[in-house]
Amino acid sequence: MPTAPVRVDVWSDIACPFCYIGKRNLEAAVSTSGVPVEITYRSFQLDPDLPEDITGSNAEQLAAKMGVTVERARGMERQTTTMAQQVGLDFDYERMQPANTFHAHRLLHLARAHGRQAELKDRLLSAFFVEGRHVGHLEELADLAAEAGLDRDVAIAALADGSFAAEVADDVARARAYGITGVPFFVLDEKLAVSGAQPAEVFVEALQRAVAEQEAA
């Protein structure tokens, strides 16, 4: 008997390398398994107190936050860069512009309302990790929205008037209530969870289990 699409709620941030890698692994699993899914990206900010504009490199920012040397922070960057390459992503930490992602999350909620959330999520992640674009500035975000198929004027209006701040806060509050302390975090049909950028085969297993649970219900 055909099952309904598996609902996948993904808590993630933009400035989160494992969120990008995990997204690719989930997509590979969906393609491999053939399981129909309905994916919603939920807001989670790893560092909500970051200012809009940050001077210095990502490694310097990371080193200061963690209390480690810049060289050690660069080693962590190299590690995630290597992992990203394994799923076809070309991270460029030299060009990366650290930014507060609050407005980007608001824009993702606007995109969801217009049926373009998946496109915008991918656009934002690529802009941040690969292209070195600033995902905190409103004009840049509006450009990215347009590139993802949204109306630029609608996007800039929503960004300017503070729309979807409550939706971002709701997602963050729900993550806290669910005990989610790290991202990416994937919830399937409100029953199963996958924590972290797991290999595609783990997502395949999770999707197949979700389908089996639907069939058993």
Partner: peptide, 24 residues
């Protein structure tokens, strides 16, 4: 919160692979 944290069956996978508190 206590009940919510236990509400999902977490599928077994590799430990780590998470970004938490600004670090990965």
């Amino acid at each position: 919160v206590a009940a919510a944290a236990a509400r999902f069956v977490v599928v077994d996978g590799v430990d780590g692979m998470l970004c938490d508190d600004g670090t990965c």
